[in-house]
Amino acid sequence: MSIQHFRVALIPFFAAFCLPVFAHPETLVKVKDAEDQLGARVGYIELDLNSGKILESFRPEERFPMMSTFKVLLCGAVLSRVDAGQEQLGRRIHYSQNDLVEYSPVTEKHLTDGMTVRELCSAAITMSDNTAANLLLTTIGGPKELTAFLHNMGDHVTRLDRWEPELNEAIPNDERDTTMPAAMATTLRKLLTGELLTLASRQQLIDWMEADKVAGPLLRSALPAGWFIADKSGAGERGSRGIIAALGPDGKPSRIVVIYTTGSQATMDERNRQIAEIGASLIKHW
């Protein structure tokens, strides 16, 4: 067993022997301040990774656009098919120029040779490549099948209805392509620590998230040296922004954090800054 596999296998073990965790309302004060600064709703939840206990939450059962955070769930569904012998990570998928959609920095470079399922998941999570996500959605049967996968996990809230990039439209009061912070946090925890996926697939999923290259201005910008984070960000229309993450000190994750916002007129930089400040408060009061 590799060191990384050992780390993920012992996530519940280490967490069980940690000192009790206590909620700190100071972080919620910052979440509410972010709402004021952005002029928009902000949803927040913080779960203990081992027990699933909610440590703090704000608007945990209000719907927010998922945006690209759905790509972690998508690759979880792909990995479940791999575990069941219905898919192979090494299978190569070929596609054409007509398949390319807006923001496809990886797939646009491989029109000639195609990409493997493993490479597509890596591109979808680490670079948020939209064509990679659409190609992977095709392998599982489309958005409705991802929703069905989530329902089978016990998540009857999260739903995907459309493809990239239309799913980022974020129309107010439109339930399409949305989740709730509580539902997303619980589902992410199941994917990373539950028995739904094999140990190898859980490790692969967290490795992809740990290698995320496009979430630097968010929670990662607030992390002290030595902290662990595996995350996936999302951005959408109407001032929408979000991030889902597993993080913790001492090089291992111990909490799940989900943050979503929508309806702001603020710039992307300002949305990023507010999420980073929430992260800084979380870490300060850990």
Results as ranks from 00 to 15, higher is better:
residue 24 H to S: 08
residue 24 H to V: 09
residue 25 P to W: 05
residue 26 E to V: 03
residue 28 L to V: 08
residue 29 V to F: 11
residue 29 V to R: 02
residue 29 V to S: 13
residue 31 V to I: 13
residue 33 D to Q: 04
residue 33 D to E: 08
residue 34 A to H: 09
residue 34 A to D: 09
residue 34 A to N: 12
residue 35 E to P: 05
residue 37 Q to N: 06
residue 37 Q to F: 04
residue 38 L to I: 10
residue 38 L to G: 01
residue 39 G to I: 14
residue 39 G to N: 14
residue 40 A to P: 10
residue 41 R to H: 12
residue 41 R to N: 11
residue 44 Y to K: 02
residue 44 Y to T: 07
residue 46 E to I: 08
residue 48 D to V: 11
residue 49 L to I: 03
residue 50 N to D: 13
residue 51 S to Q: 07
residue 52 G to W: 04
residue 54 I to W: 10
residue 54 I to M: 13
residue 55 L to C: 03
residue 55 L to A: 10
residue 56 E to V: 06
residue 57 S to R: 02
residue 61 E to C: 01
residue 62 E to M: 13
residue 63 R to K: 03
residue 65 P to G: 03
residue 65 P to R: 02
residue 66 M to A: 04
residue 67 M to F: 09
residue 68 S to K: 03
residue 68 S to M: 02
residue 68 S to F: 07
residue 69 T to N: 04
residue 70 F to H: 15
residue 71 K to F: 15
residue 72 V to C: 03
residue 73 L to H: 00
residue 73 L to Y: 03
residue 74 L to S: 01
residue 74 L to K: 01
residue 75 C to P: 00
residue 76 G to L: 06
residue 76 G to Q: 05
residue 77 A to P: 08
residue 78 V to D: 07
residue 79 L to I: 04
residue 80 S to L: 14
residue 80 S to W: 15
residue 81 R to Q: 07
residue 83 D to L: 14
residue 83 D to T: 02
residue 83 D to N: 02
residue 84 A to D: 04
residue 86 Q to N: 07
residue 86 Q to Y: 08
residue 88 Q to C: 01
residue 89 L to K: 07
residue 90 G to Q: 11
residue 91 R to C: 03
residue 92 R to E: 09
residue 93 I to Q: 02
residue 94 H to S: 10
residue 95 Y to E: 14
residue 98 N to E: 10
residue 98 N to R: 08
residue 99 D to Y: 08
residue 99 D to W: 09
residue 99 D to L: 07
residue 99 D to I: 09
residue 101 V to R: 15
residue 102 E to P: 01
residue 102 E to W: 00
residue 104 S to G: 03
residue 104 S to H: 09
residue 105 P to N: 04
residue 106 V to P: 09
residue 106 V to F: 09
residue 107 T to I: 03
residue 107 T to Q: 04
residue 108 E to H: 08
residue 110 H to C: 01
residue 110 H to S: 02
residue 110 H to T: 03
residue 110 H to N: 03
residue 112 T to L: 05
residue 114 G to W: 11
residue 114 G to T: 12
residue 116 T to K: 01
residue 116 T to Y: 00
residue 116 T to G: 02
residue 117 V to P: 06
residue 118 R to Q: 15
residue 119 E to G: 02
residue 119 E to L: 07
residue 120 L to C: 02
residue 122 S to H: 06
residue 122 S to E: 10
residue 123 A to Q: 01
residue 124 A to S: 06
residue 125 I to W: 11
residue 126 T to M: 12
residue 127 M to F: 09
residue 130 N to D: 14
residue 130 N to R: 14
residue 131 T to P: 05
residue 131 T to Y: 09
residue 131 T to S: 12
residue 133 A to K: 00
residue 136 L to N: 05
residue 137 L to M: 03
residue 137 L to P: 02
residue 137 L to Q: 03
residue 141 G to S: 02
residue 141 G to V: 03
residue 141 G to E: 03
residue 142 G to Y: 00
residue 143 P to I: 09
residue 143 P to N: 05
residue 147 T to Q: 03
residue 147 T to W: 05
residue 147 T to L: 05
residue 148 A to N: 06
residue 149 F to W: 11
residue 150 L to F: 01
residue 151 H to W: 06
residue 152 N to K: 11
residue 152 N to G: 11
residue 153 M to P: 02
residue 153 M to Y: 07
residue 154 G to I: 03
residue 154 G to M: 09
residue 154 G to F: 03
residue 155 D to G: 08
residue 156 H to Q: 08
residue 157 V to K: 07
residue 159 R to F: 07
residue 159 R to G: 13
residue 159 R to Y: 14
residue 161 D to S: 00
residue 162 R to Q: 00
residue 164 E to N: 10
residue 164 E to H: 00
residue 164 E to P: 00
residue 164 E to D: 00
residue 165 P to C: 00
residue 170 A to C: 02
residue 170 A to K: 00
residue 171 I to D: 01
residue 171 I to S: 00
residue 172 P to S: 04
residue 173 N to Y: 07
residue 175 E to P: 08
residue 177 D to A: 12
residue 177 D to H: 08
residue 178 T to P: 14
residue 178 T to M: 10
residue 179 T to E: 14
residue 182 A to V: 07
residue 182 A to G: 08
residue 183 A to I: 06
residue 184 M to L: 03
residue 184 M to E: 11
residue 184 M to N: 07
residue 185 A to P: 10
residue 185 A to V: 06
residue 186 T to D: 12
residue 186 T to L: 05
residue 187 T to Y: 00
residue 188 L to S: 15
residue 189 R to K: 12
residue 190 K to I: 15
residue 190 K to R: 11
residue 190 K to H: 12
residue 193 T to I: 05
residue 194 G to L: 06
residue 194 G to P: 09
residue 195 E to I: 00
residue 196 L to W: 06
residue 196 L to V: 05
residue 198 T to E: 10
residue 200 A to P: 04
residue 200 A to E: 05
residue 201 S to A: 05
residue 202 R to N: 02
residue 203 Q to N: 11
residue 204 Q to S: 07
residue 204 Q to N: 04
residue 204 Q to L: 08
residue 205 L to H: 07
residue 205 L to N: 06
residue 205 L to G: 05
residue 205 L to M: 09
residue 206 I to T: 12
residue 206 I to P: 03
residue 207 D to L: 04
residue 207 D to P: 00
residue 208 W to N: 04
residue 208 W to S: 06
residue 208 W to D: 09
residue 209 M to F: 10
residue 210 E to I: 11
residue 212 D to K: 15
residue 212 D to Q: 06
residue 212 D to P: 15
residue 214 V to S: 14
residue 214 V to H: 15
residue 216 G to W: 13
residue 216 G to Q: 04
residue 219 L to C: 14
residue 219 L to W: 15
residue 219 L to V: 07
residue 219 L to I: 09
residue 220 R to L: 12
residue 220 R to S: 09
residue 221 S to L: 14
residue 222 A to E: 14
residue 223 L to W: 03
residue 224 P to R: 05
residue 226 G to Q: 10
residue 226 G to C: 09
residue 226 G to I: 07
residue 227 W to T: 02
residue 228 F to Y: 14
residue 232 K to R: 05
residue 232 K to C: 14
residue 233 S to C: 15
residue 234 G to N: 05
residue 235 A to C: 12
residue 236 G to H: 11
residue 238 R to T: 00
residue 238 R to W: 05
residue 238 R to Q: 05
residue 239 G to S: 00
residue 240 S to M: 07
residue 242 G to W: 03
residue 244 I to K: 15
residue 245 A to S: 12
residue 247 L to Q: 14
residue 250 D to Q: 13
residue 252 K to D: 10
residue 253 P to L: 09
residue 253 P to C: 09
residue 254 S to Y: 01
residue 256 I to E: 07
residue 257 V to S: 15
residue 257 V to Q: 13
residue 258 V to F: 07
residue 258 V to R: 05
residue 260 Y to E: 08
residue 260 Y to A: 06
residue 261 T to A: 04
residue 262 T to A: 06
residue 263 G to K: 04
residue 263 G to R: 00
residue 264 S to A: 01
residue 264 S to M: 02
residue 265 Q to N: 12
residue 267 T to M: 12
residue 268 M to L: 11
residue 273 R to H: 14
residue 273 R to Q: 15
residue 274 Q to F: 09
residue 274 Q to L: 10
residue 274 Q to D: 11
residue 275 I to A: 10
residue 275 I to S: 10
residue 275 I to H: 10
residue 277 E to T: 05
residue 278 I to P: 11
residue 279 G to R: 11
residue 280 A to P: 09
residue 280 A to H: 14
residue 280 A to L: 13
residue 281 S to C: 01
residue 281 S to D: 08
residue 282 L to T: 04
residue 283 I to D: 14
